[in-house]
C-alpha cells in the first residue's frame, strides 16, 4: 500500500485516481503514523514552499518522513513535494526543507515566461537508464510541468531527469529509494502513468 500524504496542500485526488486506475493500492492520510505501515510514500503538493513546510512540521510528518526514508522505504515527491525533499528554498524568503537531498530550490531567470507551464521533454541521466523508475521511459518523452522554481541538486549523481527551459534544469531526482519529480506524472498521460506504474513496481 502506498500512503499519499495529505497535509492540506492542494488536490490529492488526481494522484489517487491515477494509482487506482493502475490497480495500485493507495491511501490518502493525514496521520504520520500511517506511514509506518505503508510500503511506499508519495508526497504531493502545490502551493508555496514555506507554508507547506510549516504544515509538515506542525503535523509531525517531517520527522516521520525522515524516519521512514532512513529505513529505505520508497518515497516519491511530486512537484512541490519534490522541492520539499531538498535542504532549502528561496521561494518568498528563505525556508528550510526536509533535507533528504542536498541542494536548493531557486527561481527561473526573469527573461523566461514564468511559470514554466506545459509539456516539456525529459533527458534520462545515463547512470539511471536501466533503473526501474525509467522502464519504458525514453529521452525525448514529454511530461507536464507547472512551476516557477526549480531544484539545483548539489550532487550530479542525484539527477534522474533533466529538461531544457532556457537552459537545462533538473526535472527529477533520485537518491537510492528517494525520488522526486518536478513534473506531474499523474497529468502526463502515457509517460506519467508509466512512471507511476514503475514506482508501484519499486514498492512491491
Amino acid at each position: 500500500m502506498i500512503a499519499i500524504i495529505d497535509y492540506g496542500a492542494g488536490n490529492l485526488k488526481n494522484v489517487q485516481h491515477a494509482l487506482s486506475l493502475l490497480n495500485i493500492e493507495c491511501k490518502v492520510t493525514g496521520q504520520p503514523a500511517d506511514l509506518q505501515s505503508a510500503d511506499g510514500i508519495i508526497l504531493p503538493g502545490v502551493g508555496a514552499f514555506g507554508e507547506a513546510m510549516n504544515r509538515l512540521n506542525e503535523t509531525g510528518f517531517t520527522d516521520e518522513i525522515k524516519s521512514q526514508a532512513s529505513k529505505g522505504k520508497p518515497l516519491l515527491g511530486i512537484c512541490l513535494g519534490m522541492q520539499l525533499l531538498f535542504e532549502k528554498s528561496y521561494e518568498h524568503g528563505e525556508h528550510e526543507g526536509i533535507g533528504l537531498i542536498e541542494g536548493e530550490i531557486v527561481r527561473f531567470e526573469l527573461d523566461l515566461k514564468v511559470p514554466h507551464m506545459g509539456w516539456n521533454q525529459l533527458k534520462v541521466s545515463k547512470p539511471y537508464k536501466d533503473a526501474i523508475i525509467n522502464q519504458n521511459v525514453q529521452d525525448g518523452d514529454y511530461v507536464y510541468f507547472v512551476h516557477s522554481f526549480f531544484a539545483q541538486p548539489k550532487n550530479e549523481e542525484d539527477i534522474l531527469h533533466a529538461t531544457d527551459y532556457g537552459k537545462p534544469f533538473t526535472s527529477a531526482v533520485k537518491r537510492n529509494h528517494i525520488m522526486g519529480m518536478q513534473y506531474h506524472p499523474e497529468k502526463s498521460a502515457r509517460v506519467g502513468m508509466q512512471m507511476l506504474k514503475n514506482f508501484g513496481e519499486m514498492v512491491r
Binding site: 491515477a18 507536464y144 497529468k187
Partner: peptide, 8 residues
Amino acid sequence: VAEEVHIP
C-alpha cells in the same frame, strides 16, 4: 473528468 482523464 478528473477521474478518467490524465491530462491537465
